[in-house]
Amino acid sequence: MAPRVSFLIVGAVLLLGLAAGAARASNEEGDALYALRLRLSDPNGVLQSWDPTLVNPCTWFHVTCDHASRVVRLDLGNSNVSGSIGPEISRLVSLQYLELYRNNLYGEIPKELGKLKNLISLDLYANKLTRRIPKSLSKLSSLRFMRLNNNRLAGSIPGELAKLSNLKVM
């Protein structure tokens, strides 16, 4: 009977460890999203469900997660939010779709977006983003769709973006 009890204890400890790992990942992503939330003005209350005390941001509106509770889509397109996009968004390592179009976002496009290796779609058009397109976006080898038009960007399109062999729409 003693081996059976120890087996159950080891199993319970392993399950708790896996759950804690998933909770940590969700908390890191929740922290990153909440940091974005703090940067944004939200006159229509579209971010009211973004509660940092919840373990998992997958229950928040405008956030989509995969089966492992990792954030894969952030869709705040046409939400009338304003503010800046901060570097903390790069902590959403499983992010595939970043949809922030038709808002009043200003400031630079963070160079840290180049860390989002799984990004398929980057949609930032019709905001008030300024400065140059970061060369770091050339690291987004999975990127298929990128819209940056109707902003206040300066300079030329970085030649490094020509390396994006999967990019179909720019």
Rank of each mutant, 00 (worst) to 15 (best):
43 P>W: 07
43 P>S: 07
43 P>I: 04
44 N>A: 06
46 V>A: 08
48 Q>H: 13
50 W>D: 15
51 D>P: 13
51 D>Q: 13
51 D>Y: 12
52 P>A: 08
53 T>F: 09
55 V>P: 09
56 N>H: 14
57 P>Y: 12
59 T>D: 14
60 W>E: 14
60 W>K: 13
61 F>T: 15
63 V>L: 13
63 V>C: 14
64 T>G: 10
66 D>Y: 11
69 S>Y: 11
69 S>R: 13
69 S>E: 14
71 V>L: 09
71 V>C: 09
71 V>N: 08
72 V>D: 06
73 R>H: 08
74 L>A: 10
74 L>E: 08
75 D>P: 11
76 L>G: 07
77 G>N: 06
78 N>I: 00
79 S>M: 10
79 S>T: 10
80 N>W: 04
80 N>E: 02
80 N>F: 02
85 I>L: 10
88 E>A: 10
88 E>N: 08
89 I>H: 02
92 L>G: 02
92 L>D: 03
92 L>T: 04
93 V>G: 00
93 V>T: 02
95 L>C: 03
98 L>W: 05
98 L>P: 05
98 L>D: 05
99 E>K: 07
99 E>V: 07
100 L>K: 06
101 Y>N: 11
101 Y>D: 11
102 R>E: 07
103 N>V: 03
104 N>R: 14
104 N>T: 09
105 L>I: 10
105 L>S: 11
107 G>F: 06
107 G>Y: 07
107 G>I: 06
108 E>H: 12
109 I>F: 02
109 I>L: 03
112 E>A: 09
114 G>S: 01
114 G>P: 00
114 G>V: 00
115 K>P: 00
116 L>P: 00
116 L>M: 01
116 L>Q: 01
118 N>A: 01
118 N>S: 02
119 L>R: 00
119 L>I: 01
119 L>A: 01
120 I>N: 03
120 I>V: 08
120 I>Y: 04
121 S>K: 03
122 L>S: 05
122 L>V: 04
123 D>A: 07
123 D>S: 12
124 L>K: 05
